[in-house]
Every structure is written in C-alpha cells, then in structure tokens.
Simulated assay, not measured.
Amino acid sequence: MTQQRLQNYVDTLKSEGIMDGEYEESRKVQNETNLPNLMMDLINSFLRDGDNSMRELADLLTARNVDFSKVTTAAHLIKGGGNSLGGCRVVAAARALVNASLNQDKRSCETSYEWVVNEYYHFRDKLRTLYQMERAIVNTESRRRG
C-alpha cells in the first residue's frame, strides 16, 4: 500500500511536469542493489547540497563583481542533483543559469536564478514528501523482516 502511494505521487509529479522517469530509475537501482536507504540518501544529499548552492548563488549574484565560474559550479550541482532525482524543471532552470553564466551575462543570470529559486524550492517541498514516503516503506519492510 505504501509503495502504491509513493508510485501514485511520483505519477502525479510526472503528469504535472515536475519530474521525469529518472526517480523511478534510481529506485530500480535501489532495489537491484539491495540498498534500502539509497533514495533517502540521494534526497538528503540533494537537499543539503542544494540549499548550500542556493545560498552561494544568492551571495555570488549580489556581489559587485560576479564570479561566473563559481556561479556555473553551483548551478551544475543543482542541475546534477535534480537530474539524479528526476527533477526535470529544476534541471531546465539550472541549465539556463549555467548557460547564462558561461556567457557571463549577469542580467540573464539574475533572471535564470529567479527561475531556479522557484523550481528548486517547489521541487524541494515535493522531495520532502517523497522522503517521508520512502522512510515509511523502509520502516515497514524492516518490521516485516524483523
């Protein structure tokens, strides 16, 4: 039942265009490798690294002289983490920020950053729900084995 609720939630996020199928691919890896905490670890890592990158981006883009290489690096971290969890909209926003940074276009960076902010925090909220569902599944399965 808990597995089905999780799948229904993922399906809803996919139908809303928030996620693609990569989350399910990562879950397959979790099941095939018998790493029951893999998804929770991926989510935790994305949230921790993403929050740090978001703070760093805010600081970098308000600086008098923007360090575009650091902006690119921080945006790449968000893009990579979002990609591993299927966050296609946050990935698209981060990709736009990477491109603006590579072009050293501060105005485009600021516009793209606003997009990243919207998508990142929206996706973060969804991931927190997914984390709770994943934890419930792990707890249920460990009780069954236990």
Rank of each mutant, 00 (worst) to 15 (best):
V116W: 00
V10L: 06
D105P: 04
R95Y: 00
L130Y: 10
T12P: 01
L60R: 11
T2F: 08
T33Y: 14
Y121V: 00
K79S: 02
D41N: 12
N99A: 05
S84M: 00
T2C: 08
N34G: 05
G80D: 00
I137A: 10
S45K: 09
T62F: 03
L97Q: 01
S15E: 09
F46D: 01
K79M: 05
Q132H: 14
G82T: 07
F68N: 11
Q30S: 12
Y120G: 01
N139L: 14
Y121T: 06
L13E: 02
H76F: 08
G146V: 14
D125T: 09
N44V: 05
L38A: 02
Y113D: 07
E56M: 07
L42A: 01
L47C: 05
V117G: 00
E25V: 09
E32H: 13
S112G: 12
V29P: 08
R124D: 06
R89S: 03
E24G: 07
V10C: 04
A96N: 00
R5I: 08
A93S: 07
R143T: 12
R128Q: 13
G21H: 06
R135L: 15
F46K: 02
E119T: 08
S142K: 15
E25Y: 05
R55N: 12
R95C: 01
I137T: 10
L38V: 12
R89F: 03
N83E: 04
S69I: 11
R128N: 14
G87N: 04
R107N: 08
Q3V: 11
G50Y: 08
E32S: 13
R55D: 10
M54H: 11
R48F: 08
N34W: 15
D11F: 02
Y131K: 14
L13S: 00
R124E: 10
R135F: 14
E110N: 13
E134V: 10
E16S: 06
I137G: 10
L102I: 02
V66F: 10
I78S: 02
L42M: 12
M1N: 10
R144P: 01
T2P: 02
M40E: 13
Q7K: 10
A100T: 07
Y131E: 15
S101T: 06
S108D: 14
L130M: 15
S69F: 04
W115N: 08
Q3L: 13
E25S: 05
W115V: 04
T2Q: 05
L13N: 01
L60P: 08
T33I: 11
Q132L: 13
G17S: 03
R89V: 06
A94T: 02
R5Q: 11
I137D: 03
K106T: 15
N103F: 04
L6S: 02
L97K: 01
Q30E: 15
